[in-house]
């Protein structure tokens, strides 16, 4: 069987799987990192957003072979203790309802804040409209992103080497 080496949440991992297997299923079924969710598998819902390097990517659309040698950050690796500014803001404003999409929302927001530490409403619309929340928590997500941007410096974030 083929095998690939990549870095997930700062740790080197070796995965034996077809290079065509989407990163989503590598994470969920091979590495048992289930925080990254399956919502559509066709790149339209955003529940599986992770960071590949510095950028948000939909894990369902990224084949394993494409992330060989790269760094992947998932919700499990965003912070050691759940105290990333976005995670704290999400809890502070009680954003989640069913909670299923929220890992994708938070990871998309994390990518946004890396590019734009003080995003405008238009920035938030542009960056976050790829991630559907079927419970309709958008208004609170918007507020939580702003709260994280204001109140909490990005330096507390765990950045995988």
């Amino acid at each position: 069987m083929e095998h690939f080496e990549l870095k997930v949440n700062g740790q080197n991992v070796r995965v034996e799987a077809s290079g065509e297997m989407p990163l989503l299923w590598v994470l969920r079924d091979k590495l048992n990192l289930c925080g990254t969710k399956y919502g559509c598998g066709v790149g339209v819902c955003g529940s599986c957003v992770v960071l590949v390097g510095e950028f948000a990517a939909r894990a369902c659309m990224v084949p394993l072979k494409q992330v060989a040698g790269k760094s992947v950050l998932t919700i499990e690796g965003l912070s050691k203790t759940g105290d990333h500014p976005l995670q704290r803001a999400w809890m502070e404003l009680d954003v989640p309802q069913c909670g299923y999409c929220q890992a994708g929302q938070i990871m998309a927001a994390a990518a946004l804040l890396r590019r734009k530490p003080n995003p405008t409403d238009a920035d938030i619309d542009a960056a976050m409209s790829d991630v559907i929340c079927r419970c309709g928590t958008y208004d609170r997500i918007r507020s939580a992103i702003k709260l994280a941007a204001q109140g909490a410096p990005g330096s507390e974030e765990e950045v995988p080497a």
């Binding site: 048992n32 289930c34 499990e76 965003l78 809890m91 009680d94 989640p96 909670g99 929220q102």
Partner: peptide, 23 residues
């Protein structure tokens, strides 16, 4: 009293177990 969801921390850290996450 305004009360945070009991599952919030698990949800925002990716530890919450939904049906598809049953291992």
């Amino acid at each position: 009293k305004r009360t945070s969801r009991v599952d919030n921390r698990d949800v925002v850290t990716g530890r919450a177990v939904f049906g598809l996450d049953v291992r």
